[in-house]
């Protein structure tokens, strides 16, 4: 029996860490979605442990890719072959699973983006810049405040008969407007539905401003689980929205696919191996560089007893010894 070739994708985001394993036919063998809880290294190690236990014995990891805001960190911990930004990763994943996609709406924990695809390549994109209104964290907070489990949030919104209008321009104003509507006696369902509509309006006016949204529209990211938001998007755009099966881990999937492509070009994986990731002690320490008046805070990641990577310098003095930077240039 020949061993199965497996590719891993790791997405370290601000709110969640996702790990997926795919085979050569892009079939998902296992996926893990855990909260970052501000401790990316420990949680990532735990996620890797879970992934190792999920995969059948005897599989061979042939490649690993990382993405998300913590991609550099994750790349050092797992020793990744490919380090890619989340826009490219999401674009690749959507195109793989929904080949005729022309627009991707992605709403994650702390950022939201729109990716425009034409003829199978990314042709334009935008990310939210200043405001967190409309992202997963905000919805989470409102659900907690209304004492509704976040999983039920969308279903409740669909029950609404006459949604109220919520000011969605800013997270703080949206919250006070919601409270105001509550005190007026509006029903919980109507308020939630109103909030979903406000968030969609806000997204389309900010992130989606000036972008040509054409079907097929794919909606991904953790918030895509919310049927209320999904419905609001469909009403605002007038198109049917496709939510892919693995909507919540599309970034990680993209990273895995990119790793697969990279390895298929004849490269050998640098993956550390599950055991070594778990055994190795990763610690970080930071210090202030006194080279100039910038006083950059330099963070060092130490793997075992050697410095694995450094971040944070503006001038490049410290990143020059950065292994991940070299790796990235090797990938390019």
């Amino acid at each position: 029996m020949n061993t199965k070739k497996v590719f891993l994708g790791v997405d370290v985001g601000s709110v969640s860490i996702n790990v997926v394993a795919i085979d050569q036919g892009n079939n998902v063998l296992g996926k893990i979605y855990v909260r970052t809880e501000g401790k990316p290294i420990q949680i990532l190690k735990k996620a890797m442990e879970d992934m190792a236990s999920m995969l059948p014995v005897g599989v061979e990891i042939r490649g690993v890719g990382t993405t998300g805001s913590g991609r550099e960190l994750a790349a050092v911990v797992v020793s990744a072959d490919v380090v890619k930004n989340e826009i490219t990763a999401h674009g690749i994943a959507a195109l793989t699973f929904v080949p005729d996609a022309r627009t991707i709406l992605e709403i994650g924990g702390q950022d939201s983006k729109i990716i425009i695809l034409r003829d199978g390549v990314v042709s334009d994109f935008a990310m939210n810049t200043v405001c967190a209104a409309g992202t997963g964290s905000f919805l989470d907070r409102q659900a907690a405040r209304l004492n509704i489990p976040i999983e039920k949030f969308g279903e409740l919104a669909l029950k609404s008969k006459s949604p109220v209008r919520i000011a969605g321009r800013c997270a703080v104003f949206a919250e006070s407007d919601m409270i105001h509507k509550q005190q007026m006696g509006c029903s919980c369902e109507d308020i939630i539905r109103g909030l979903c509509e406000a968030l969609v309006r806000n997204y389309l006016n900010n992130v989606g401003k000036g972008k040509e949204i054409l079907p097929r529209v794919v909606f991904q990211g953790g918030v895509a689980a919310n049927v209320g938001i999904r419905k609001a998007f469909e009403e605002a755009l007038g198109y049917e929205i496709t939510v892919p099966e693995h909507y919540d881990v599309m970034g990680a999937l993209g990273a895995a696919i990119l790793a697969k492509d990279y390895v298929s070009k004849g490269h050998k994986t640098k993956f550390r191996g599950f055991e070594e990731i778990l055994k190795k002690e990763f610690t970080s320490r930071s210090f202030e560089c006194n080279g100039c008046a910038n006083y950059c805070e330099i963070v060092e990641l130490i793997a075992g007893d050697s410095v694995a990577a450094r971040w944070g310098g503006r001038c490049g003095k410290w990143t020059r010894t950065n292994q991940t930077a070299e790796k990235r240039s090797a990938v390019m």
């Binding site: 805001s69 890619k84 930004n85 989340e86 826009i87 490219t88 390549v121 990314v122 042709s123 334009d124 994109f125 990310m127 810049t129 503006r314």
Partner: peptide, 15 residues
């Protein structure tokens, strides 16, 4: 923020 700035540049170059 420098991280978001770099992400955009990287994504644009990929595009």
């Amino acid at each position: 923020g420098e991280a978001g700035y770099f992400t955009r540049l990287e994504a644009f170059v990929d595009l």
